[in-house]
Design a protein around this nucleic acid. Structure first.
Lengths: 328, 328
DNA sequence: CTGAAAGCGCTTACAG
DNA sequence: CTGAAAGCGCTTACAG
C-alpha cells in the first residue's frame, strides 16, 4: 500500500508537508494542498492508523468484552457503544469470553496489547485475580450491567429496586400470591439482589412468601418452562410471577398457555430486560426495561472522556422503567 | 507503559534479546529467559501490538461491518467470526453502517486505515461506488448473507432454493392456498429471490397464486401484523403463509391467534432465519434455518487464509435446513 | 548466545 | 510555507 513517502515523491514535496495536508494542519499553500490531495487520491492512499497511533500513543480503540452465546441484549450495548465511538473516530474491538469468565484475564491482556484506550466489560462476575489485573491496567475500565467491589466503576440499573418495583407492580394489580422465577443463586449481582427486592416488596405489603415460589434457574427460556411446570404441581399455586429475564418469562407464559391457562387472567407475568422478544410474545410481555443502548453509549462516552482528561470514571445507576404491555 | 527498552535496561540485556524471549524465538540461555520474563512480569508489561503490527505489516485484525439496529441474527455472525479469530490471535473490530448503506464507503475507509487484514460485510445491498471501492482494496473482503455482482465473494444460503423448500414444505403438509409475507421489493437478494422460489414451488405443484397473497414488507414483526390483517380482509384467504423472516412470522401468528384463529390448524406459518425467537414463539415456529454462526466462522477462516496465502476467496453457498416445530 | 542498527509509517518540534 | 530529523515500540537480518 502507498505511504506518505510515495505521495511525497510523486508530489515533489516532503513527507512532513504530506502529513500536514492530510491532517489539515495548515501551513501550506492551497496549491500544495491540491497537489498532495490529488496524488493521494490517485494512489488510493489510506492512512496507516497503526503508525499514527504508535507515534501519538493513542490507538483510538475501545475494547468490549462480553460473555459467549448471549445474543440477548448485547446487541444493543454494542450498538450504543459503537455509535458514540464512531462519532469521535474511535473503533471498537470485540472479544467474547466464556460465560464463566475463565479466559477473561487472557482476553484483557490482548486488549491491553492492542492498546485500547479503555475497556468495557459486560455482565461478568469478576474473580479476584481479574479485579487485581484490572486495577493494574493503565487505561480506564467500566463494567456494564454488572458490578464487582467498588474498585471498578460500573453502569447499571439498581437491580434490587427494579425487582422491588416489578413485584410491587404485580401487587398493585391485585396479585398476592407472587412467585419469582429464574434467578441464579450464585449470581450476586443479577440473582440474589433481585430476590431481595422481591422479598422486600412482599414484606412491605405483608404478603407471605411460600418458599416453593422461589424457583432458581439460569435466566433462560427453558428455566421458565421448568418453573411453570414446577408451579403447576404446587397446591399453593402462585397467581403471578416476577421473572428475572424476558426469556424466562416467555417460557412461563407459553407453558401456562399450553396447559390451558390464560395470561394474565389466570397467571400474570412480568419480565426483566425488555429485550426485543418482549413485544413479540403473545400476549406481549410487560417488563422491567434496562436501557442497554444507553448503557453502551454512556460507557463509551465515559471512557473517551476519561482517556482524554485522565479523570477517573464515576459509577452510574441508570433508571429502569416498567414497560406495560398485556401480560399483567 | 513499560516498553522492551525498559525491560532491557532492568534486565541488563539488549532490546533484541528481550524481543526474542518475549516471542519465544529461541537463541538465548534459560537463565536469560528467566531474567527477562521476571522483569517483564514485575513491570506489568504488555506488548504493543501497534508497534509489532507496524513492523510486521500485519495488524491481525478482521473488520466486520453490519447494519444498524439489527439485533436479529448478527449476534451469531459476530460470535462465529470472533471465535475463529480469537483462536488464531486475531482481533475483530466492529462498525455499524446505517441500514441503507449510505456511510458504508466511509466506514470501509476507516477499516482500511486500521489495516484490517480482511473485511466481512453483512447484509448490505452494495451500491456501485462501494463495489468499486471494495475491488480496489488491498485486502480480502467477503460478503455474508448477501451478495452483489460476482466481483466480491460471498457466503450465503441459496435464498431461492430455501424459499422453494419452505413453500413446498407447506404444500407437502396439505396446504394449497399459500401466501408469502414480508419481502422487500427493492431487495434483490433477500426479497425478490424468495418470491421467485415461492412462485416456482407453486408453479411446480400447479397451484394458483392470488396476487393478494403477496404482501410486501420490511422483514419486521410489524410487517407480519399488517400482513395478517390484510389476509383477514381477503375473500380468498390463504391457509398457510411463508414468511421471509421469523419476526414477520411471529407477527402473523400472534395476530391470527388474537383474532381467534388456531395455528397451525386454521393457518400454518413457516419462518425464515431460525433466530432464537423461533423456539420462543407460541406455537414454536417452524423455520428455514440459516447457519449464521457458521457463516461467521467461515468468513473468518476464509479471510485469515486468504490474508496468509494471498489466495482469492471462493464464494460459498451454505446449506439451509428446515427446523420443524409446531407452526405448520 | 547476544547486540547494534535499520526500518515499519507516521507526527511534530525545530530551523529556516 | 517547507523540509530534515528524531522518535513512537517493536522485529529481524547481520555480525560476532
Amino acid at each position: 500500500m502507498p505511504t506518505i513517502k510515495d505521495i511525497a515523491t510523486q508530489a515533489g514535496v516532503s513527507i512532513a508537508t504530506v502529513s500536514r495536508v492530510l491532517n489539515n494542519r495548515g501551513g501550506y499553500t492551497e496549491e500544495t494542498r491540491k497537489k498532495v490531495m490529488r496524488v493521494a487520491e490517485n494512489m488510493n492512499y489510506y492512512r496507516n492508523e497503526m503508525a499514527a497511533g504508535l507515534k501519538k500513543s493513542a490507538a483510538r480503540i475501545i475494547g468490549l468484552i462480553m460473555p459467549k452465546s448471549s445474543t440477548l441484549f448485547y446487541g444493543d450495548i454494542i450498538e450504543g457503544l459503537e455509535s458514540v465511538a464512531q462519532q469521535r473516530g474511535y473503533g471498537v474491538i470485540i472479544a467474547h469470553a466464556s460465560g464463566d469468565g475463565i479466559n477473561l484475564s487472557e482476553i484483557i491482556s490482548i486488549m491491553a496489547e492492542r492498546r485500547v484506550e479503555g475497556l468495557v466489560i459486560a455482565s461478568f462476575a469478576l474473580a479476584q485475580n481479574v479485579i487485581t489485573q484490572i486495577n493494574g491496567l493503565p487505561f480506564p475500565v467500566v463494567l456494564v450491567s454488572t458490578q464487582s467491589d467498588d474498585s471498578i466503576p460500573y453502569i447499571k440499573v439498581d437491580d434490587e429496586a427494579a425487582a422491588f418495583d416489578a413485584t410491587e407492580y404485580l401487587i398493585q394489580h391485585g396479585h398476592q400470591k407472587i412467585a419469582i422465577a429464574g434467578p441464579n443463586v450464585t449470581d450476586k449481582i443479577a440473582g440474589m439482589t433481585r430476590i431481595k427486592g422481591y422479598e422486600r416488596a412482599m414484606m412491605k405489603h405483608h404478603l407471605p412468601i411460600d418458599p416453593n415460589w422461589i424457583f432458581y434457574g439460569d435466566f433462560s427460556f427453558e428455566a421458565g418452562i421448568h418453573a411453570m411446570k414446577h408451579y403447576f404441581q404446587l397446591s399453593n399455586r402462585p397467581e403471578a410471577v416476577f421473572s428475572v429475564s424476558d426469556d424466562t418469562a416467555i417460557g412461563i407464559m407459553n407453558t401456562a398457555i399450553q396447559e390451558g391457562l390464560q395470561v394474565p387472567a389466570d397467571i400474570a407475568v412480568i419480565g426483566y430486560d425488555n429485550t426485543r422478544v418482549a413485544r413479540m410474545a403473545n400476549p406481549a410481555l410487560t417488563a422491567i426495561s434496562q436501557p442497554f443502548f444507553q448503557m453502551g453509549e454512556k460507557a463509551g462516552n465515559k471512557i473517551m472522556s476519561a482517556a482524554a482528561d485522565n479523570i477517573p470514571i464515576q459509577s452510574e445507576i441508570l433508571p429502569h422503567t416498567i414497560v406495560e404491555r398485556q401480560s399483567v
